[in-house]
Amino acid sequence: MSVRHLLTVTAAVSAGTIALAAPAIAQAAVQPSAATGMTSGRLGPTLTALVALIGVVIGGLAVRSAGRTGNGERRALVALGLGLIGVVGGGLFAVTADGGPGTGNGIVGAFAAMVFGLMSMALGGLTLVRARRTV
């Protein structure tokens, strides 16, 4: 088999593959893709989830310092407040979201905000129970 024959067969197979793949490529180009990046629908739930996550961190610090100083109770109250903001805000964003995950409406961030909010409230409540028990 000569090199010229091999190049001809390779070119014919490549052209046939491209011809068969062209409709699939065109169809993929027409279909709308999922929203990427920070859309206006994702900004609010993301910030709410971030606030609730900060509440989880403060709640964790409060649990560690529950019996030692008065800072534990203050941190617990802050964690409870930030957790409440996360649960209520996440719930509102989840109710008003139009689509599911990947649509750019922030439903994943809303559920994350509710989960982090519940964790923050649980840590704050645990700290208050421990602080009151030691007094």
Rank of each mutant, 00 (worst) to 15 (best):
G104M: 03
V88F: 04
G81P: 05
N105A: 14
S120P: 01
M114L: 07
A15P: 06
V9E: 10
S65R: 15
R75H: 10
I107S: 01
A49V: 00
M38C: 07
N71M: 11
A24F: 15
G41V: 02
T103D: 09
G59F: 03
R74V: 15
L50A: 15
L43D: 04
T8K: 15
A22L: 13
A97F: 05
P23I: 09
G55I: 01
A26Y: 11
L126E: 15
G37N: 07
L82S: 02
D98C: 05
M119F: 14
G83M: 03
L82Y: 03
L6V: 12
L123I: 06
A62P: 06
A28G: 15
V9Q: 12
A66F: 04
I25N: 08
G55F: 01
L123S: 11
A34Q: 11
G72T: 01
P45I: 01
R42T: 09
A15C: 05
A122T: 13
G102E: 08
T127H: 05
A49G: 10
V63I: 08
A66K: 06
V78M: 14
L50S: 14
A21F: 08
A131P: 05
V88H: 04
I54M: 13
T134C: 13
G70P: 09
A110N: 02
V129A: 12
G67Q: 12
P23F: 07
V115K: 08
G102S: 06
G59K: 08
G67D: 09
A26N: 08
T134I: 12
V9D: 14
A34V: 09
V129W: 09
A49D: 01
I54D: 02
S14D: 13
A12V: 15
H5I: 10
I107N: 00
